[in-house]
Simulated scan of single mutants.
Amino acid sequence: MNKLSMLTLAGAASLTYAWAQEKPVVEEKSQPAIPERLLDESHMKEELGVNEFTAPSIKKIFEDLEGLPPIPEETAIRKRPDKLPVDRSSLALEMGFLMADGFIIVQCGKMNEVRPIALDLSRYAKAMGAGERVNRHAASLLKNAEDGDLTNFKNNLALTQNDVEQELASLRDPDMAHLIALGGWIRALDAATAALDKKFSPDQAKVVFQPDVPEYFVEILGGLEPEMQQRRDIQGIRKLLERIQAQMTLSPETPEPTEETIKKLRETAVSLVKTALGGFSA
């Protein structure tokens, strides 16, 4: 093993240890109802079900956005941080961004981006204590990309999220599972608004206007443990989500999305990306 690999492993181990020391014992808590269209098939199985650890499926989020105009290349290819985040909330949000990156590269045909994303997924999962599970999926993702098997590629990304979710359930940490899903949704919104801002279509834009999704995440963030809220600008993220909820709410006066409403939504989405990633963005 070379020196860089040893340092990476040491850093991941240190982060996992710090996370375990930081994590207090918390009582189980209820969560707001997840919009049903964002529940994956696996959530309906009896052995999993919908519980406090269940989060919206990133795969389902992207299924909602199929049929949009092409995503601009400057948005599709995202620069990612070289170093792992130092706090759990940032780690989870970035993990969600990474999973969403996988769906975006499939949509854009940028399959040469699969390897770095798969490696980063393994790196982040290891820091969360779910490295073994995710490593199996990372190998499958590379094989799917090599074979051009896009359906199984997306299925393996969904399984990656499910496996991390199950690992977090064993650690009694539902907050992390929800933040992963939030990161995936923010990245999906980033891609969708960039595509519509470049090539607007009122019919295609309708699928983005789902105010119940930001409303759900606003409630989730309000229930995060206090220490996690202090480590990141959670209140800043909540305020931007509330603004997005209002911008997505169509009215009798404006019953259809317009170019102007998309431009405003795009501006807020860009601010949300920057806030969610703590100032780090492409």
Rank of each mutant, 00 (worst) to 15 (best):
M111D: 09
K239A: 13
A169S: 12
W185E: 13
H137T: 10
K29R: 10
I244R: 14
L84G: 06
L224I: 05
I77F: 05
L84C: 05
Q229V: 13
K83M: 08
N152F: 08
S281C: 09
Q21V: 10
P202V: 09
L7V: 03
E66I: 10
D101T: 06
D190L: 12
V86P: 02
K143A: 05
K239C: 01
P252D: 14
Q21S: 06
G222V: 04
K154Q: 15
D197G: 10
I117R: 00
Q229G: 04
A33E: 14
E66D: 15
E146S: 11
R266A: 12
Q245S: 13
V208A: 15
A181E: 02
L39K: 11
P81S: 11
D173P: 02
I58A: 04
A127F: 03
A130C: 07
R123T: 04
I262T: 13
Q31A: 10
G236N: 09
T258R: 12
H43A: 15
Y216F: 11
D147M: 06
E132K: 08
D147Q: 11
L265F: 15
C108S: 15
R172W: 07
E225R: 07
Q247R: 00
L119D: 10
A205V: 06
M176S: 13
M99V: 12
A192W: 02
F209I: 01
M1I: 03
E22Q: 05
M99A: 06
A13R: 03
E146D: 09
A269T: 13
A282R: 06
R123Q: 10
N156L: 01
A12K: 03
I58E: 02
Q21M: 08
K239H: 07
G49I: 09
Q161E: 15
F280H: 09
S281N: 11
K154I: 02
L15M: 06
E28A: 12
A205F: 00
D190M: 09
L141C: 12
V273N: 11
R80P: 00
P214F: 10
S271L: 14
S57L: 07
A92T: 01
K264N: 07
A118G: 07
D233H: 01
A194S: 12
A194C: 08
F62L: 05
K263D: 10
A12R: 06
S122A: 04
L224Q: 04
T258N: 15
E227T: 06
G49R: 13
